[in-house]
């Protein structure tokens, strides 16, 4: 595909970027709301996480005495790292803002940079809980990164393209004809779903709602954050969730607009698909207890082997 830019593409790319950033807290809120409904609670407002973000911005920051420059820069770095990955996703319009950057290896390693700074942040305040979270974060990242790379490389081999934008361009164009397997996207989706749960600190790997310092992962890392920094961390986690959900929605059924006319339909479908995955995640979270910490490798190894099988199949040219 042609990835050269003109003003229209750039403008629409920026528009798409802003829309998916703005939607990110909504999906996180939707999952929360659905989970509460499954429990028989009335639940929060679906837009609650926007209010939370606003409230956190209005609050002042309390910074630890021990904090160095890492505490001040890393929230912004993490936010921009996740933003740039989100900006690569052709969520509903093919020429995404950073479509040129969307090489598969770059995506995985850029996400890794986010984890790197997150764990540095966790160690910066000299709090025991932060390090506990950082250790577990790396533990799960290490287990899930090979699967993530395998998933992306499978997609690349499957479509014989190296960039995310071209990959989904290929899948969409060939979805209805040609030699096209539904087995590979299906099993990739299983693997990606497990990874999405683990990377976004969801049950059964982590419990996002707990107050127990000793069992949590993501929340333990940002335990010392307050005010706008906490707000940035929260927003970054919504964006990360959005990245994974968008990937899933693209793999299962890509419908991406090429011209401005198609955008409304594609946007509608995008929101619908995302809501579907939110629903699925909330069901999984309601039906499963949190795993024991050292049982998680079982689940993640299954994700790895499934993506490996997908890769073998894609190399065979199924």
């Amino acid at each position: 595909m042609d990835i050269s830019l003109n003003y229209e593409k750039l403008l629409l790319g920026i528009l798409q970027f802003i829309i998916i950033i703005a939607l990110a807290p909504f999906f996180a809120g939707l999952i929360h709301k659905l989970k509460q409904n499954f429990r028989g609670q009335k639940g929060i407002n679906m837009f609650q996480f926007y209010f939370n973000f606003g409230k956190l911005l209005r609050k002042g920051v309390v910074l630890s005495d021990e904090a160095s420059y890492i505490s001040i820069i890393s929230p912004y770095i993490i936010l921009s790292v996740y933003l740039i990955v989100l900006g690569m996703m052709p969520a509903f319009y093919i020429y995404s803002l950073f479509s040129r950057l969307s090489d598969i290896i770059v995506i995985v390693y850029t996400l890794g940079a986010g984890v790197f700074f997150l764990t540095l942040y966790s160690l910066d305040q000299g709090s025991p809980f932060g390090g506990l979270g950082g250790e577990r974060e790396w533990f799960f990242t290490m287990l899930s990164e090979p699967s993530l790379i395998f998933i992306f490389i499978t997609l690349a081999i499957y479509s014989r393209k190296g960039m995310l934008v071209s990959i989904f361009d290929f899948i969409q164009k060939n979805a209805l004809g040609g030699h096209f397997s539904i087995a590979i996207p299906f099993i990739l989706l299983i693997s990606l779903f497990i990874l999405g749960l683990s990377e976004n600190a969801r049950i059964p790997i982590d419990n996002p709602e707990t107050h127990l310092e000793l069992t949590m992962i993501h929340e333990a890392i940002i335990l010392e954050a307050s005010g706008k920094y906490l707000g940035i961390f929260e927003y970054s986690s919504y964006i990360k969730l959005s990245i994974f959900l968008t990937l899933m929605s693209l793999i299962i059924f890509p419908y991406i607009a090429y011209t401005p006319i198609d955008i409304p339909l594609a946007l509608g479908l995008y929101i619908f698909k995302m809501a579907m995955f939110c629903f699925m995640i909330s069901i999984v979270e309601s039906l499963n207890p949190k795993m024991r910490l050292f049982r998680a490798p079982n689940l993640l190894s299954i994700a790895f082997i499934i993506s490996l099988i997908a890769m073998i199949l894609s190399i065979r040219g199924v």
């Binding site: 397997s181 539904i182 087995a183 299906f186 099993i187 190894s301 499934i306 199949l313 199924v318």
Partner: peptide, 22 residues
């Protein structure tokens, strides 16, 4: 044919899951 492929792959996947569950 694609559906048949999908079902056959799912046979393998369920065998792997079986290996991964105590």
């Amino acid at each position: 044919v694609r559906l048949a492929e999908l079902f056959s792959v799912l046979i393998l996947i369920s065998a792997v899951l079986n290996a991964g569950s105590p």
